[in-house]
Amino acid sequence: MGRGHWDADGLRDILQDYALETLADPEAVLVIDETGFLKQGHASCGVARQYTGSAGKITNCQIGVFASYVSRHGHAFIDRALYLPKAWAEDPVRRRRAHVPETVDFATKPAIARSMIERALAAKVPFSWVAADSVYGVSDIEIALRRAGKGYVLGVSAKHAFNSWGKAYAVSGTAGSIAEDLPPEAWQRLSAGAGTKGERFHDWAYLDLADLDGGEFNADLSGAWTRGLLIRRNIADGDLAFFTTWCPQGTEVEMLVRVEGHRWAIEDSFETAKNELGLDHNETRSWHGWHRHVSLVMLAFAMMARIRHHANAAPPKKTMRKARAERQH
């Protein structure tokens, strides 16, 4: 893995095409998220004390940013990148020992995510939405997606500011303060989709803040698009989560809720890939070793997604003549 001579990015492109042969759907959601790879030492490329949701704390680990393609046919990873902390990116000795390519510079996680989205657009991957958590919600990603004519549901913090214009009502303030002022009737209970334990119900509130002409961002786009604020409230403890949204005018809140719910697929994918395919069982230390190992695991995951799709497909209906012949036989 670490010392061989083959192109991990070439394999990534192959597995992307392979996955899309089965999963492609113009209404698909591209989900961006990250996961941690716990490490003991300090030699593995990109390892540092940093927060990872995998452990729920700051610990010694690598962080990988992933893009998962989620459609009605199933889901699979189609892109990945190792996050290289600034201390690594600016240390020529560590870079040389880990064989970090000279073309790789420090990039924030949102910048990595934007590069993945741009690669998907350049490869003409069919999708209509992007969903991500609050690490990626405040960045140039929003502008890039508006220019591409893609809708999004991106997490933001409670301190993120929102303002409305061109509406009969005025909304101004942080996401948290806006949520506090909402009347009880603003909330509705909706499912974000089925999980391992059934439908995932939460209380939701949605405010459309402004309607803008798509042509302002891309001359080829027509019609009005709506910028909004989506708020999720946990039924059990009242915990709130906030999302900035962008969608064609008239999009129902149920659709935005379903798009946000697609993020569950990548969380499930991380768990499956680690437990069953060895995603985090990588003992190479180099930049190339990490990307090669992870790309091979992604290919195995895509193969399983393809097999699962075909196994779950409804068998073709038998004609009456064929069924009668089989009974007589």
Rank of each mutant, 00 (worst) to 15 (best):
R3F: 12
R12P: 06
A24S: 15
P26Q: 07
A28H: 09
D33F: 12
A43V: 04
A43S: 12
G53A: 14
G56P: 10
I58C: 04
T59L: 03
N60W: 13
N60L: 12
C61D: 00
C61T: 03
A67S: 03
A67V: 02
S68L: 13
G74W: 00
R80I: 02
Y83L: 14
Y83E: 05
E90D: 14
P92M: 12
V93S: 11
R96W: 09
V104A: 02
D105W: 05
I112S: 00
L121I: 11
L121K: 05
A122D: 08
F127T: 12
A132R: 01
D133E: 08
L145G: 00
R147D: 07
K150D: 05
K150W: 02
L154N: 00
G155T: 00
V156L: 07
V171L: 06
V171P: 03
G176N: 07
L190I: 11
G193C: 12
G195P: 05
E199S: 09
W204E: 10
Y206C: 13
D208G: 04
D208C: 13
G214Q: 13
L221F: 13
G223L: 10
W225S: 05
I231F: 03
A236Y: 10
L256A: 03
H262E: 12
W264F: 11
I266R: 09
E267F: 09
K274W: 02
N282C: 15
S286M: 08
S286V: 10
R292N: 13
S295D: 04
M298S: 05
A300N: 09
A300E: 03
M303W: 06
K317P: 05
A323P: 11
A323M: 15
A323Q: 13
R324V: 08
E326Y: 12
